[in-house]
Nucleic acid binder design. Sequence first.
DNA 1: ATAATTCCTGACTAAATTAGTCGGGAATTA
DNA 2: TAATTCCCGACTAATTTAGTCAGGAATTAT
Lengths: 157, 157
Amino acid sequence: MRLSTKGRYAVTAMMDIALHERVGPVTLADISQCQGISLSYLEQLFAKLRKGGLVEGVRGPGGGYRLARPADQISVADIIQSVDEKLDMTKCGGKGNCSQGEKCLTHQLWFELSCNLYRFLSGIKLDQYVNRPDISELVKKQDIQYGRFLNRPQAIA
Amino acid sequence: MRLSTKGRYAVTAMMDIALHERVGPVTLADISQCQGISLSYLEQLFAKLRKGGLVEGVRGPGGGYRLARPADQISVADIIQSVDEKLDMTKCGGKGNCSQGEKCLTHQLWFELSCNLYRFLSGIKLDQYVNRPDISELVKKQDIQYGRFLNRPQAIA
DNA sequence: ATAATTCCTGACTAAATTAGTCGGGAATTA
DNA sequence: TAATTCCCGACTAATTTAGTCAGGAATTAT
Ligand code: FES
Ligand code: FES
């Protein structure tokens, strides 16, 4: 489990989509502008998120990305795993052969820490934030500020 | 809070020292060989651990590094913080000004996640592993394998 | 005193990862 | 048909991680 700014970008972008789920697909261009992430970099990240089965793209005007499954079934761990590949922090990759073919002194430490960390991050689902009144308030305010979804009739309905 | 292999190196090295606390100071040369980390890189990491007040160096023959305070008062969070500097994952650094001077959509997410993650890693102290029989067994076996502390009379006493 | 050991320091290089760029293409909608 | 958007691959730049080198300072053992 590696936890860096790359994972933060991915989670941030996924949050943005989840927060606008009822409006419809969200374009990467929008995310790029509102979250301050380079468009092309987002495309790289979303290639991985797509492979990870977390999002699906909708092409053409009015398109964008939407969640591939309900927000309560997407965890922060899922997202980080999709973009950073590995989930465990052992040096050996779980095989216990760091130290001349044997388990090294810290194998157990990293193994257990990985399990606990994974369990922790798996417990945080996107919908926990989507359904919070204080966050919804903020989203609405900022969408107006950025002029998002002005060309979407269904956004109001 | 950034969680990468650099932090793993640091925690691994600290674990090694903690596991040999009763023997005396542990040399970086030993850690380098047994844990497979470059000696000079270890020196860089220990410069930070020293500045962080986690270890103190003892020079001269028979010297090495020892913990600056009891193992039950050193957490994984302390170590990672010492070598990776920052503890919080917000883009803004806690000030809430990502999005044109305002809190961005995900500020709360990262703030709360940082707090929880910090609390989690703070709860893991070095002594939890030092006092485990299965680990102690492994340490003894591997020290013999690597021929450690052969020149230390006090190691047996 | 001398030599050996070990920490300590700073500057430098190499490799890997992260981040961003570019140029184009394919599917969809209006 | 034109506009929009995802999609794809190769490229570059910046940052971080990892390792190297060449010394110096404190301590202990002889
Ligand atoms: S991390 Fe698994 S044996 Fe070292
Ligand atoms: S992370 Fe704090 S405002 Fe965006």
